[in-house]
Design a protein around this nucleic acid. Structure first.
Length: 260
DNA sequence: TAACATGTTACGGT
DNA sequence: AACCGTAACATGTT
């Protein structure tokens, strides 16, 4: 559920709540939810993996679904206590479960750098390039997950983008030829839009080339897999035959199993 | 069925 | 202060 494109879909699914007034609020969030009572939902925005319910007058609710979060529109989830349940006028409802809920009491434009959001109209590839230039030693698997650079990109998108551009996950940013760096930035956004379309059509999974796969779709080469790769310590799937590693950086030894 | 996963944050230690 | 590693959280799926 929770990568950037899924949040855009969520935003679109609840767009019809814009302009409605909150009649009742409940939920097990620690925020003072009753402050929302009687307020009008002025706008719904997203930034990366954040859903932003803007109630105006410097009060917005930030929802982050993390790994397990979910939502329901105009219905309840059987046997689950909502973290936040909003009842609106016109008998509309919106529930969120197992997620992070926080108030933001600063204008959203002051808090968020919209140019970093790969799904945003304000996405700025040049800004991303500048940030990447300042961190030559970081590996590409880590920078794709860096929300200050590629807000909305998650682990699936990371793995798929790197395969699409035939780039090894452990390549340091500084070792990338200029054109490859351009591809990385371009495809971080392009793949996210492909993800968005496939997700809407319920065909996302079948388009996965490497994520959670065993062999490379190009020629059946067994994929390499590391459970905890890079600083982010996330799963990486890649093909050593077609994903090139740049730079004279020795392959890192297999990551020791992280204690869990 | 136990382990894991599309994610992040809080906290303690250095 | 900045950085690092670990625990914690939560739930559907395999």
């Amino acid at each position: 559920m929770p990568e950037g494109p899924s949040l855009v879909i969520l935003r679109e699914n609840i767009a019809s709540l814009t302009g409605l007034k909150v009649r009742e609020v409940s939920g097990n969030s620690k925020q003072d939810l009753q402050r929302l009572r009687g307020r009008t939902l002025r706008a719904i925005r997203t930034w990366g993996k954040h859903l932003l319910l803007d109630f105006g007058d410097d009060l917005a609710v930030r929802i982050h679904l993390l790994l397990f979060g979910s939502y329901r529109i105009d219905e309840e989830k059987e046997g689950k206590v909502p973290r936040l349940a909003l009842s609106f006028t016109k008998k509309r409802r919106l529930n969120f479960y197992a997620c992070s809920v926080r108030f933001i009491e600063t204008p959203l434009d002051d808090v968020y750098d919209w140019s970093a959001d790969v799904m945003s109209d304000h996405w700025d590839p040049k800004a991303a390039r500048g940030k990447l230039k300042s961190m030559p030693d970081a590996i590409v698997a880590d920078v794709l997950l860096d929300q200050d650079i590629f807000a909305g990109v998650g682990n699936i998108i990371k793995n798929e983008v790197l395969h699409r551009i035939r780039l090894h996950p452990e390549t340091p940013v500084g070792a990338l030829p200029s054109r490859k760096l351009t591809e990385l930035i371009t495809q971080a956004r392009q793949y996210s839009f492909d993800f968005y379309e496939w997700k809407k059509q319920f065909v996302l999974r079948k388009h996965w080339q490497v994520h959670a796969k065993k062999t490379c779709p190009r020629d059946g080469t067994p994929l390499s897999y590391r459970q905890y790769l890079g600083k982010a310590q996330r799963r990486a799937f890649w093909c050593d035959a077609c994903q090139r590693r740049y730079g004279n950086v020795p392959a890192t030894p297999a990551t020791p199993l992280r204690r869990r």
